Computed example of a mutant assay.
Amino acid sequence: MIPPLRRIVAVCSLGAALAACGSAGPADTARPAPAKSSASASPSTARPPVLAPGPGGLTPVFEHGPRTLGKNIALTFDADMTADQGPRAASGEHFDNPELIGTLRTLKVPATIFMTGSWADQYPAEARSLGHDPQFEIANHSYSHYAFTQDCYGLPTVDADQMRADVERAYTAFRTAGVPHALPYFRFPGGCYDQQALRALNGLGVTAVQWDVVSGDAFATDADAVARQVLDGVKPGSVVVMHCTRSAAPTTERVVRTVVPELRKRGYRFVKVSELIGETTGQH
Rank of each mutant, 00 (worst) to 15 (best):
T59E: 03
D84L: 13
H94Y: 11
V167C: 07
A182L: 13
R169I: 03
E137Y: 02
G154D: 10
H145C: 03
G102D: 09
P189A: 03
G92W: 02
E93D: 15
L107E: 14
E99V: 12
P87C: 04
G154W: 01
L58W: 00
T82Q: 11
N72H: 15
Y146E: 14
A120P: 03
M81H: 07
D96F: 15
Q135N: 12
D151K: 14
A89S: 13
F174C: 11
D78S: 13
A182C: 11
R169V: 03
Q85L: 09
T157Y: 12
L100Q: 08
A52Y: 04
Y153I: 12
R47C: 13
Q85R: 15
D133Y: 11
P49N: 05
L130N: 04
V50G: 02
T76V: 05
G102A: 04
M81S: 08
N97T: 00
R175W: 00
R187Q: 02
H141G: 02
A139K: 09
I101N: 15
A125K: 14
T157G: 04
A147W: 02
F188R: 05
F77R: 15
A83S: 15
R105Q: 14
G190H: 10
T106M: 07
N72W: 13
R175G: 06
F95V: 06
V179W: 01
R175I: 04
A160C: 04
L104Q: 04
T149K: 01
M115N: 08
Y171W: 06
N140C: 10
D96L: 11
P55N: 06
E137R: 07
L100M: 11
G154I: 00
A83Q: 15
A170K: 07
G191T: 08
T149W: 01
I113R: 08
Q122I: 00
D166C: 04
G191L: 02
G102S: 08
G131Y: 02
G56K: 08
T176W: 00
C152A: 12
N72G: 08
A165Y: 00
P184G: 10
F188W: 10
I101P: 00
S144I: 00
V158Q: 10
F148D: 08
S144E: 10
P53H: 05
F186V: 11
F114I: 06
P53R: 06
E93H: 08
G178C: 09
T172F: 11
P180T: 06
R88I: 03
A120R: 05
A89T: 12
R187S: 02
V167A: 11
L155R: 12
T59D: 04
P110W: 02
A74H: 06
Y171L: 11
D96N: 13
A83G: 11
D80A: 15
L107T: 02
S91Y: 05
A139I: 07
Q85M: 14
T112Y: 00
A127S: 07
A173P: 05
T106Y: 06
A90G: 14
F114V: 07
T157K: 15
R67Q: 11
E168H: 04
Q162F: 05
F114M: 10
T59W: 00
Y193Q: 05
L100G: 09
Q162T: 07
A147V: 01
T172C: 05
I101V: 13
A173T: 08
A170Q: 07
